[in-house]
């Protein structure tokens, strides 16, 4: 038992700079590899739908706009996204069509404004590109 055991520490902080940050005005940098918002690079996407299948929040939606022209539309619902980055891991192309940036201030007042969509032609640049939705296995790591 010691009365006022905390006193030296408290008085020291009285003359120190506060440890907190004036948030909306000053921001801390996020570390490298931070999982922010997912994005699509439409030039690389081969429409294998691996990301759509593995997305735990069902935030990715790929629909065919015109099957004959191989035009597809991908919608990322950022309101549902849980920022796990599994879509990036599941993406089989090199370099990856799905990428995740470090943007984290994506809140909005309406969930409908948080959608992002791309309409694009399926890329065929991959030599060993699997046909849509390989049923066998997908790389996990």
């Amino acid at each position: 038992m010691r009365i006022a055991a905390f006193l030296p520490e408290l008085l020291r902080s009285l003359f120190k700079k506060p440890n907190t940050v004036d948030y909306p005005f000053k921001k801390l940098a996020v570390p490298e590899g931070f999982r922010g918002t997912p994005h699509l690079d439409p030039d690389m996407c081969i429409v294998c739908r691996a990301c759509e299948r593995d997305c735990p929040a069902e935030a990715i939606e790929i629909t065919a706009v015109n099957e004959a022209e191989k035009r597809f539309r991908m919608v990322i619902h950022n309101d549902r996204c849980i920022h796990c980055g599994q879509c990036v891991d599941s993406c089989p192309t090199v370099p990856k069509a799905m990428r995740i940036d470090s943007l984290f201030e994506i809140a909005d007042d309406s969930r409908h404004k948080m959608k992002e969509d791309w309409v694009y032609v399926r890329a065929v640049i991959k030599p060993k590109a699997p046909a849509p939705a390989p049923a066998g296995e997908s790389p996990n790591a």
Binding site: N19, P31, G33, F34, R35, H83, C84, G85, D89, A141
Partner: peptide, 30 residues
Amino acid sequence: RDREVVMDLLEMITGNRVHYAINAVGGVRR
């Protein structure tokens, strides 16, 4: 305040502060 130290470490290793998502079936992701 001092817990922030370990939170920053976790964020650095895994890419997020709370839901680390470091596990993958068969190992880890990072």
